[in-house]
Nucleic acid binder design. Structure first.
Lengths: 318, 318
DNA sequence: CTGTTAGCGCGTTCAT
DNA sequence: ATGAACGCGCTAACAG
């Protein structure tokens, strides 16, 4: 294995000169810097992370924390794309992506604690937002950098990346009412009251008011409830759902009662393979990969008082 | 930060004694070992991974490699559950999960190379199986330990964890023909010819022969093809699909032409929220979390000549 | 059984 | 502008 000593020897300089040259220290003449850097690349020299981290006292790793259970917020391709966006950005900085994931909250917290205490990881990404989250509390207490995916609740002013869900709600509703000429759209959401659902609903309600249509919301609780809801609202002629799965589910139940009708649908995440439904489905792309890369730039931002603590990623309807 | 010197000092012994005691070295008397270990836990001592790794020359991390694109094999909750299974097992061993994920194959390979050269990672999990995969080739060449999720192709005898897909195919087909009393089942697969699809199809064909029914396979190529296929096969009265998405898609197209009919469905992965279809869907659970934990035990197995290089996880139909 | 010493690879004083 | 020497936290070889 090639160490910095080898490079120094081959270059005919001391180790410290080599080290400085490789780190672009201006105290070394530009000429020798270039020379040594060229040599290093030529020889295929790679610095040992463990040694670097040992001296610096900080790991070149970012901890990415998954929610304990995501059976409810089923945005799965979303996570994968997010990871891709995060990691591509981390690689540029010579950083590594470490994940914390577990079924139980206790084990997850233990995981994060080990990353901090033993792994010297000082930067984290939380792929979720929870009320009174022990992981976030721990990170705050230790004054470690972290960014959440999704706007914080509980009134914390953490750094975060999110979509502009209100704007996306407005955009989706306008698209439905304007372009698709729907008269009586229904807003479909899960029974969980997720933050992004509330925000998108607000956008929907605002547009509804503007178009003088009565806002109408259906939570996907039990089957009977939804079926009876549909029965009582025969006027529905279009769907706006908080994600693709909710959209498909409601669409199916609607068609069950009104077989022949045609219902345009707008939903979010762009996360399903085509062919799962015959609905005229317009899924809003939220660009998870961009969210990932924005997360990293926020995570490594200067964090001055003046700096923005949030990034909103725009959406796209097609 | 508490180092091993502090523990040694408080215990009134030398650093090396402390080190040995904490690593349970039998050269230290059991009494002092216990004493020092107790002290360490009491004081909340945590060894620094970077220092350990520097001396050992090997990182306490496992590299988990994602496929470059998974837009085709859409088993997403599958990946998350897999990660959970892997990480839970890694935590027990004081290991950390590092991921390599990227959009391009070149960048992915670069990612893995950095993990090896700079991160000193020596164990990997490949969440996929590809023909002539450069990552796998690199790992083989460097004689590093790795386990793939899915049976290797290309005739390599890598370590792997998989379902017994043939058996699962037989089980699924039997369930359909026997319990659900289907007479003319169709086997639905993607256009990709994945290994697991072929194996499940074999199982299906074997059972079909046994029940004296003509095997019938439909690849989900373009829409027109599938619609025409359905038109030419009005005898179909049940579906066996290689995953839930394929099942739902085919089911939908079938119902389009035969609205009133009832078609039992068997598919795999157990990966969708309920409510997405009105099909009588029996999705085979493949226990991804168990696969994850098996992967780790294989990754850390002794690797003697005699040892098995594979683990098959059983399935369950409900 | 335990302590002393050296060294892992690198960054960084402090000299020169 | 460059080099020598030390230290990060820990393990291991070598004493005793």
């Amino acid at each position: 294995m090639l160490t910095i000593r080898d490079i120094a020897a081959k270059a005919g300089v001391s180790v410290s000169t080599a080290s400085r040259a490789l780190n672009n220290n201006p105290r070394i003449s530009l000429a020798t810097r270039k020379r040594i850097q060229a040599l290093a690349t030529a020889e295929g020299y790679r610095p040992n992370y463990n040694a670097k981290n040992l001296t610096s006292g900080e790991a070149n790793a970012v901890g990415v924390v998954f929610p304990t259970s995501d059976r409810n917020s089923t945005d799965n391709p979303f996570y994968i794309d997010l990871l891709r966006g995060i990691n591509t950005e981390l690689m540029k900085r010579q950083y590594v992506l470490s994940v914390a994931i577990s079924k139980t909250a206790d084990e997850l917290l233990e995981n994060v604690k080990a990353m901090v205490a033993q792994g010297k990881i000082k930067r984290f990404v939380l792929l979720y937002v929870h009320q009174a989250d022990p992981v976030a509390a721990f990170l705050r207490e230790k004054h470690l950098h972290f960014v959440t995916i999704g706007e914080p609740v509980d009134g914390h002013d953490d750094y975060f990346v999110d979509n502009d869900n209100l704007e996306a709600g407005i955009g989706g509703a306008s698209f439905l009412l304007d372009q698709l000429a729907v008269k009586h759209p229904v807003f479909v959401e899960s029974g969980h009251n997720w933050g992004y659902e509330q925000q998108r609903r607000q956008g929907y309600e605002r547009v509804a008011a503007q178009y003088n249509v009565e806002p109408l919301t259906c939570k996907l609780n039990d089957l009977e409830y939804v079926q009876s809801f549909i029965k009582h609202h025969p006027e529905i002629d279009g769907i706006m759902a908080t994600d693709d799965f909710n959209a498909i589910e409601f669409y199916r139940l609607l068609r069950e009662q009104y077989v022949a009708s045609h219902f345009p649908v707008v939903s979010y995440n762009h996360s399903l393979p085509t062919g799962l439904t015959d609905a005229n489905l317009h899924s809003v792309n939220l660009f998870p990969e961009k969210m990932g890369s924005a997360t990293v730039s926020l995570l490594f931002s200067d964090r001055e008082e003046t700096a923005d603590k949030q990034i909103r990623i725009p959406y796209e309807i097609k």
